[in-house]
Nucleic acid binder design. Structure first.
Lengths: 118, 118
DNA sequence: GGCCTGTTTTGATGGATGTCTATGCAGTCT
DNA sequence: AGACTGCATAGACATCCATCAAAACAGGCC
């Protein structure tokens, strides 16, 4: 993020993922899923804690799934959701890079600012 | 994030920050600012690389500022913007936590299927 | 088969958002 | 002072989004 100014395509893809995180209900859903034992939860576990209707929860889960942040699978009657760690790690790394701005990099970190030209 | 399901208030605040990141132009603005030498850039440096009008850039910068992601200051003729590392670090840490879910994943059971569904 | 529960999809609606043009405000320079 | 540049604000408009009620779909059970 600091090394080069983030091209249009990359920004568009990342923006889609961040947009999926830009709703309080979806954030809580994600953390709720992640905090469940085994790292997965069925929809029936997720509808309770919220004030919104069950179809709305289903909609939010779809948004998270299409953003590549969670995976889902049907097992018999119930549908289970789990977090996809790689996606979160990707976003985390991006923000981490932005949190260590150019020029403030101590020796060894590798990100020499010098010329951010490209 | 994994430890506890993220309360309503915390989720609302975080969602506001993520929402600020949910636009491609704002993401590129942020990375552009971060990649500038000294970690700051004036608006005149930021309007060029985009296809949108200057007022639109100004609007996006305002959104980033109100989300607490960047700071700004007027110096004579120009206004400078810089990234607020603490904010990005906060979000990064949250996602990092979600990316390393429940270390107590039982053997076999929780092993995230990674590509199972969708 | 028929019903019942769990989940998704559809259609509608009020509100938020990104973008523009036009205008206003703040400093600088002659 | 007046004019000119850099940036922000105001208003307008089209689009997107979160939400709900209703209906459709899927699987299990009698």
């Amino acid at each position: 993020m600091v090394r080069e100014p983030l091209g249009e395509e990359a920004a568009a893809e990342l923006a889609r993922m961040f947009k999926a995180l830009s709703d309080p209900v979806r954030l809580r859903l994600l953390s709720l899923i992640a905090s469940y034992e085994g790292g997965e939860a069925c929809v029936c576990d997720l509808t309770g804690p919220f004030d919104v209707s069950q179809p709305t929860i289903s909609h939010h889960l779809k948004v998270l799934r299409e953003a590549g942040l969670v995976g889902s699978e049907r097992r018999g009657t119930w549908v289970y959701y789990w977090v996809l760690p790689a996606a979160l790690a990707k976003l985390s790394a991006l923000l981490q890079a932005g949190a260590v701005p150019a020029g403030a990099v101590p020796a060894g970190a590798g990100a020499v600012p010098a010329e951010a030209g490209a």
